[in-house]
């Protein structure tokens, strides 16, 4: 019993450690004073300002577009690659898996620099497209690693049965395989989206001067002080995702109930 209380306490402490900064940022978004260091009273002012601030809205737009497109393209390329790798012999599969691991294990700063060098060598102007390509590159591994376990769980005979019954391989893929691995594909997509959203270092090196994502915009403000609208925007993003997760969890819980009764 004492042990259990101690375990709960430990988890609580870790969560406090991880969430204290987030709570502070949420508080700062309601802070009347422009300075980070002083509490000037409660206000919704920054939330109203936020939607008038074109710079921030532009950065948000760029961030979301890049996150969405990079996650989508990475999901397509990554899922295709995972299916192909799954049917490969051991050696080529191991080699491809090792390559997949490079961007995950490599330092962001090295990945960012190397991509910048290749873009410059190809005389490719740094901007939206270069950032998008960079994000796709570091997102593909996350998709592959999400889809792979689902593929390994697949029952190989269902696909063969579909083919025996006259389905074309493509038709069988969409009707038999995709539904089974779909949860992996979706979680890969959301993981990739989140990674892209939170990335700073690789974007920092591959973006040109004209374009800013939220991360790079925040970085330029580190020295002179963050605009409070930024706290408001982050709070909105965070709360939206929190609510979505709660809803998904609720739905998952509802689904599980009848299963238990069986």
């Amino acid at each position: 019993m004492v042990k259990k209380i101690f375990e709960r306490f430990y988890i609580g402490i870790i969560l406090l450690f991880l969430y204290a900064p987030i709570l502070i940022l949420i508080m700062l978004s309601f802070n009347k004073s422009k300075s980070r260091a002083r509490w000037g009273g409660f206000t919704f002012h920054w939330y109203k300002e936020l939607f008038q601030n074109e710079d921030i809205m532009n950065a948000l737009y760029t961030t979301l577009i890049i996150a969405f497109l990079s996650a989508l393209i990475a999901t397509i390329i990554g899922t295709a690659a995972a299916i192909a790798m799954n049917s490969m012999k051991r050696t080529p599969r191991t080699i491809l898996m090792a390559i997949t691991n490079i961007p995950m294990l490599n330092a962001d700063i090295v990945t960012g620099i190397s991509l910048m060098l290749i873009f410059v060598a190809l005389r490719f102007t740094l901007g939206f497209t270069s950032v998008l390509i960079a994000h796709i590159t570091f997102n593909i591994p996350y998709v592959i690693l999400s889809v792979m376990p689902k593929l390994k769980q697949l029952n190989p005979h269902t696909f063969e049965a579909a083919l025996d019954l006259g389905a074309s391989p493509v038709y069988a893929f969409f009707k038999v395989i995709l539904p089974d691995i779909f949860s992996g594909v979706i979680s890969g997509f959301f993981l990739a989206f989140t990674m892209s959203l939170d990335d700073f270092v690789i974007t920092h090196f591959t973006k040109g001067p004209e374009i800013n994502t939220l991360s790079t915009k925040i970085y330029t403000e580190v020295r002179k002080g963050i605009k409070p609208e930024m706290y408001a925007l982050s709070t909105l993003l965070f709360v939206t995702v929190l609510l979505l997760l709660i809803i998904i969890n609720r739905k998952g819980a509802e689904k599980k109930v009848p299963l238990k009764q069986n």
């Binding site: 989140t194 700073f200 925040i218 970085y219 963050i226």
Partner: peptide
Amino acid sequence: IIILPMWMNFLLRTIAWQN
């Protein structure tokens, strides 16, 4: 612990430690 905090930008979370 992993996915949700990422929606609060990593730079901002680090800046909050200054506070």
